[in-house]
């Protein structure tokens, strides 16, 4: 009896395999034979076979196309970006040759007409500037070195415009998005970051500006040195910042407020790591949102106030970070991702 059951089981395993092969469309004549015998054994078998066939060939609805189209747009941006940076380096090479030519020509002209041209040259210098624009697409970062040697780290989804050559008495750049600045000191030429609603003026220093068009606030954080922040509408107001201070400017109410900050976060993306201590989950979530370009929601208000100490690396995947949070909390949490939206729930 036991032998019989075993055999029957083995036989059924073979039938399942053959059924699979049949559906795939790669079946030998012998297998076909075995299958037919099984099908004809009972009406139940016939039913099952018929329904399996139906199910296998049952076409599922194509998932909605909108995600694919949105993703395609991102891909096109990446392709454009890759192609532009290729051609930009070509343009730079050409302009380098032109520059060489201009240099020699300039020396000759200079020697020929030293006295006459001196005045004219100084006047024309301020007007003949060309601008460069660097755009960093979503999810990327970029490092820029300005003509004066200052270094700028551009964050995710940001744009920086600067002249190819700075004027001798001022250095102005335009920023949309977030950037960390390390400005070479030059007392004769103050450095200005122009954003949609305010100006940040410095002589030489390290600071971070976050001015995304979609954000309600513009945030300026000073790491070292000295900066002043002036609203575009009220340039007479000069907010002076001390190292470790951050100024939050409300674009709607035009109100500015200063507060002490932990500067570690503002340099995270150039250092590649962010260290935090007793930070609320809610605050951390805001930062994760900025770093990873995601949207985080909490289903349970009490989760927001849980505090964490630790660090994460900029190169860490968002998934890794969420897993770490999940494993290190006393309250069990669960997260769900839907495109760039992440919702955190109590388990």
């Amino acid at each position: 009896m036991l032998v019989f059951i075993n055999e029957l089981q083995e036989h059924m395993e073979t039938i399942w395999r053959i059924l699979g092969r049949k559906l795939e469309g790669d079946i030998s004549p012998e297998e076909e034979q075995t299958l037919n015998e099984w099908i004809n054994e009972s009406t139940t078998n016939k039913q099952v076979y018929f329904q399996l066939n139906e199910l296998w060939n049952h076409k599922q609805d194509q998932a909605n196309n909108s995600q694919a189209i949105a993703a395609y747009d991102k891909l096109i941006n990446r392709i454009k970006f890759a192609e532009v940076s290729k051609s930009q380096s070509r343009v730079q090479r050409i302009s380098f040759r032109v520059n060489q030519f201009v240099k020699y020509a300039a020396i000759i002209i200079f020697v020929l007409s030293f006295g006459y041209l001196t005045n004219y040259y100084i006047n024309s210098e301020t007007t003949s500037n060309q601008f460069c624009t660097i755009s960093v697409p979503k999810g990327n970062k970029s490092e820029v070195i300005l003509p004066d040697g200052s270094k700028i780290w551009l964050n995710n989804n940001s744009k920086l415009t600067y002249p190819k050559k700075f004027n001798s008495d001022e250095r102005i750049v335009e920023l949309s998005g977030e950037a960390y600045f390390e400005i070479v000191h030059n007392a004769k030429a103050p450095f200005t970051v122009q954003t949609s609603d305010l100006k940040v003026k410095v002589l030489g220093t390290k600071f971070n500006v976050s001015a995304y068009p979609n954000d309600k606030f513009i945030e300026t954080t000073l790491i070292s040195g000295k900066v002043t922040v002036q609203p575009n509408d009220n340039p007479e107001i000069e907010n002076l910042l001390q190292p470790g201070e951050s100024l939050t400017f409300d674009k709607v109410s035009n109100e500015a407020s200063k507060h002490k900050v932990d500067t570690d976060f503002y340099t995270y993306w150039m250092k590649g790591e962010f260290v935090f201590k007793d930070e609320k989950f809610e605050v951390l979530a805001k930062r994760i949102e900025r770093i990873y370009n995601v949207e985080i929601t909490f289903d349970d208000e009490s989760l927001k106030n849980k505090t964490y100490t630790g660090d994460f690396k900029v190169d860490d995947n968002i998934y890794t970070i969420l897993e770490i949070f999940k494993r290190s909390t006393s309250i069990p949490i669960e997260y769900y991702t839907d495109r760039n939206k992440i919702s955190i729930r109590r388990k």
Partner: peptide, 8 residues
């Protein structure tokens, strides 16, 4: 990957 963003 279990992540929409990274899968994309």
């Amino acid at each position: 990957l279990h992540s929409a963003e990274f899968a994309e």
